[in-house]
């Protein structure tokens, strides 16, 4: 059975990297977007099993997205990863408090990410 993962990331290089890493996990379909707004629209159209988001984005920030996701009854239990370039303690604390499962600082190793996917997708 397949999983659907949403990647929200405005940097193209980073997005491609993450998408490649995620698809290396068997049975995963990836949906990517470079904009938080687009993500808001995609949420009701799909049924994502996992969401990966950046924090600093031009339209809405990652924390706002997490807050929105977590308030949607359909996504209340969906694991959510933050992948960001700058490790800021406050953002991390807030992200986790909002219900993010992991806070990852770039560069993220492929095997680490795959390990986490296995843990959150297969054990879920």
């Amino acid at each position: 059975m397949g999983y659907k993962v949403l990647i929200v990331e405005d940097s193209e290089a980073s997005r491609d990297y993450l998408a490649t890493a995620v698809t290396s996990f068997d049975g995963v379909e990836v949906v990517t977007t470079d904009r938080g707004f687009e993500a808001l629209k995609l949420l009701p159209l799909h049924r994502f099993d996992l969401i990966i988001t950046d924090i600093q984005m031009p339209d809405i920030n990652g924390l706002e997205l997490i807050n929105f996701v977590k308030k949607n009854p359909n996504y209340r239990h969906t694991p959510l990863f933050i992948v960001t370039a700058e490790g800021r303690e406050q953002d991390r604390a807030r992200g986790l408090a909002l219900g993010a499962a992991e806070y990852l600082v770039k560069p993220v190793k492929v095997e680490d990410l795959v390990g986490l996917l296995r843990r959150y997708l297969e054990l879920a």
Partner: peptide
């Protein structure tokens, strides 16, 4: 409307620019 909020919001930000700065945009259901 969910389908075109991403047109309304930037337009609002632009109209507001002379008077103020949109600092945070919290989406909600």
């Amino acid at each position: 409307p969910l389908e075109d909020f991403d047109k309304h919001l930037p337009a609002l930000v632009e109209r507001l620019a002379p008077y103020g700065e949109v600092i945070a945009t919290l989406p909600g259901h």
